[in-house]
Amino acid sequence: MAGADAPYGLGALGVPAAEEALYRAVLARPGATVARLAAATGWDPARVRRRALALERWGLLVRLPGRPARFSPAPPGPALEALALRRREEIERARLVAAALTDGFRPGGRAVVETFGGGPEAVDRFASRLQGTARREVLVLGAPPLSATAVPGVRRRAVYDHAWLDSPERLAAAREAAAGLAERSRVLAEVPLVLLVVDRTTALVRDGGTALVLRPSGLLDGVLALYELLWERAVPLEPATPGADGLSGDDGRLLALSASGLTDRAIARRLGVAQRTVERRMRRIMNVLGARTRFQAGLRAAELTRGTGLSAESPRDAGPPGDHRGA
């Protein structure tokens, strides 16, 4: 491919020109082998493999089963949107640092960042009391607070860290909590912090036996913006799979875990089943959805959900609530 190393347009999303060139080559040749891509780009096979591995990590390329190795491109729309969300997340994290520096040196007035200590149990008690003050909304990130009570009129959203849901018992506990609290729950790998936000006016950022309490400020605004980005990236804890005969709620959960990037071994451990069971169920789901890859299966399930207007989350809570500060 002439000009394979020429600059393209995905650099703003963190995709180097060489990787973008290979992605474009695969878009034009779905299912191409390494040898065919090497001929198309003018690169040696080792370089093609290295670039393909990077594209797989970014979710832009899918390696098809069988030998020789063949690659299929992820659909540009959702794949690039995911990259854009990651870049926005990085920008929001940088804004958090800037806001912390600004608020930390604000002269006079009430402190917008307070430190709370006393050990894990003291932080747990404080978090429980803080939740009790909620009148409109509670946001949870990372691991759930140890105790919570459903309050009429108070909306709850949670993004759980996969690392916390590392056993069938914890996964079952999260499902029970979601049902009992009428909570909209999602799951994400590598959640960057453990957070509790009440009414968008107070946030508790936990770090073991200590915590930071954030009051209305640029830093709190940045934390809320980061939460919304992570919410967009996360997948439902209880996804719906309507419109496809033969798919159950358990199949939907399996699809969600797979879509979030977990390996079959990790999925099996969290569901408390054998790895072969996960592999067998995934093959059946792909057959039902008419998908050649797991990525396609996830997209197909999402299309069915959108097409019927259903989801595992309540339609009346479809979007994030507005900023209630000063209400």
Rank of each mutant, 00 (worst) to 15 (best):
A179R: 14
A150C: 09
L37E: 14
L96I: 02
S185M: 03
T277Y: 10
R281H: 14
R106A: 15
R306L: 14
R70Y: 05
G252D: 12
L226S: 02
P45Q: 14
G319T: 10
N287G: 14
G3D: 14
G298I: 06
R110H: 11
R280S: 11
R24M: 10
L80I: 07
P236R: 02
A297T: 09
T133Q: 14
A302H: 04
L55P: 09
L212P: 07
L310Y: 05
R265Y: 07
A39W: 04
L53W: 13
A244Q: 14
A12L: 07
S167F: 11
G108I: 01
P16V: 00
L224W: 04
L310M: 06
R215Q: 06
G307H: 00
R49Y: 05
R284W: 01
A178P: 03
R88E: 15
S248H: 09
R136Y: 12
P192M: 07
R63S: 07
L96A: 08
L255W: 11
P65Q: 12
G261N: 08
V191P: 00
E19H: 11
L257M: 15
L37N: 12
I285L: 09
L130C: 06
Q296M: 09
L195V: 02
E114T: 08
L171Q: 05
R175L: 15
R47M: 04
A74I: 02
R316C: 09
A297M: 04
E313N: 05
R215P: 01
F71S: 06
A32S: 13
T149Y: 10
A274G: 13
T277N: 06
N287V: 13
G252H: 05
A12C: 08
V213C: 10
A74M: 08
W164I: 04
A17M: 05
L188P: 01
L83R: 12
R292C: 09
A122Y: 01
A189R: 15
